[in-house]
Design a protein around this nucleic acid. Structure first.
Lengths: 144, 144
DNA sequence: TTAAAATTGATAAATATTATCTATTTATTG
DNA sequence: CAATAAATAGATAATATTTATCAATTTTAA
């Protein structure tokens, strides 16, 4: 999602987040990215335009965004954490060959699962969020 | 699952895994544990009886077990990897308060989801495994 | 414009995991 | 059983990611 600096500042204000250049830029980069970037990737992506922003600030800002529910952590089999600014429920497809993560929207499945638990429930557990991850391989189109 | 040393040795032999004391003991500890232990927890758990076994060996052995499909990695929001020796498909309940992971078997849900994808499919993606994680809070029994 | 409070950036520290390399152990063969 | 080749273990160094520290800077509010 492409967000303007003004849009972000407004959004921050509504949530009581102090607007600083690093924060706005980091969130803009995350929101634009389609590939669930790591802290370091975000740091790199803003290097050219904002060389001053440190990696520590990127980490602190990402944590803050997660706290404020503007982003979520995506843990993977790699040893680093990735981030996602798409907060609507969606499924992640993990390609085991390329380690890439793709988004997959499936409203029907979401309802199917939610319905199952509404009907059946889980004893002694309060469900906040249901995550579905699919692991496999993305088929690329061979010899056109 | 409680496995005897002999059972494990036999299982290793069948899979072409060389039986060493550290390996057998590590796998036994993992198989017995119900709490999805980390490498360090496994290392601790065998300290008393087998003080010689190093943490490096625990890591190497766990990797090997994952390669041989005797265990799987469980990534969490914590910054360490946990391991699971239960290889049958099952759901993990993540308690966001205690960070504890509980197993939850729900054959019906598994079939529901599998059926959904059989019917609907995902374009350009070969599904190997479907993981369902449920995040929330485990309700403990208050004031008996 | 000023002042208090919060944030930043540079760097050190902590933590988890992997790599290296020699000594030991295992499995095999005679 | 003994000898041997191959694989593994253990100690430790190295790497990588993330967090903590703290003075300097920036923001917000008055």
């Amino acid at each position: 999602m492409n967000l303007s600096l003004t849009q972000i500042k407004t959004q921050f204000q509504e949530l009581g987040i102090k607007s600083t250049i690093p924060r706005v830029v980091i969130y803009q980069s995350l929101a634009k990215a389609m590939h669930h970037p790591s802290a370091e990737e975000i740091h790199l992506s803003i290097q050219k335009k904002y060389p001053g922003v440190s990696l520590a600030t990127v980490y602190k800002t990402l944590d803050m965004l997660v706290q404020k529910s503007l982003a979520s952590k995506v843990v993977t089999d790699e040893d680093k954490v990735r981030y996602d600014s798409k907060m609507e429920p969606h499924i992640h497809l993990y390609c085991e060959k390329t380690q890439k993560i793709m988004d997959y929207d499936d409203q029907e499945l979401a309802e199917l699962i939610a319905g199952h638990f509404t009907k059946k429930g889980i004893t002694n557990f309060k469900i906040n969020r249901i995550q579905v991850n699919i692991k496999g391989e993305s088929k690329t189109i061979k010899n056109k």
